[in-house]
């Protein structure tokens, strides 16, 4: 059953990701991006990590596409121009290179999934990865201040 679920989630995630990077309609692209991220949240659930799934759901699947929709509206770019020929060639080449890089993953291992409870994750976050946690908070603060400073309408 978990294999069925994996294949369903993975197939739809890929389909919607491909749709997101190829469609000319930006609103639809943002929406299919959101669906991709939902499905990835489902994959995190399969990995036995509900906390990660919930955070993926909250940040990547909800907040980020909504922000994207906002910026699409504000910059009036409802549709995107099609790619140039050389861009398609380069893109396909890069994608193929990435796949070659990952071909070692095929048939890799048959390990057992260890579920991780939110408590374990939280304790790890605040003990083993405390420095990372603090760096992340500083990064978020900087991003917030930077975004406000950059986006502020200048006088005159």
């Amino acid at each position: 059953m978990s294999l069925t679920a994996f294949y369903a989630l993975a197939a739809f995630a890929l389909v919607f990701a491909i749709f997101a990077v190829t469609t000319a309609n930006m609103v639809r692209a943002a929406f299919s991006l959101a669906i991709t991220f939902f499905l990835i949240a489902g994959l995190y659930l399969l990995l036995g990590s509900p906390a990660l799934a919930a955070i993926q759901f909250m940040v990547n699947a909800s907040a980020i596409p909504i922000m994207t929709l906002f910026i699409i509206m504000m910059t009036q770019s409802r549709s995107s121009a099609g790619p140039r020929t050389w861009q398609i060639a380069a893109g396909l080449l890069a994608a193929a290179a990435a796949l070659v890089f990952f071909k070692g993953a095929v048939g890799h291992g048959d390990g057992q999934i260890t579920p991780v409870s939110p408590e374990t994750l939280g304790v790890n976050l605040l003990q083993a990865a405390l420095l990372l946690f603090e760096v992340a908070s500083v990064l978020l603060l900087l991003a917030m201040v930077g975004a406000i400073v950059l986006a502020r309408r200048r006088a005159g």
């Binding site: 990701a17 990077v21 190829t22 861009q87 893109g91 396909l92 890069a94 994608a95």
Partner: peptide
């Protein structure tokens, strides 16, 4: 791979 393709082809 999909992401890379998107980064390179989107205008």
């Amino acid at each position: 791979a999909v992401g890379l393709y998107g980064v390179l082809t989107r205008r």
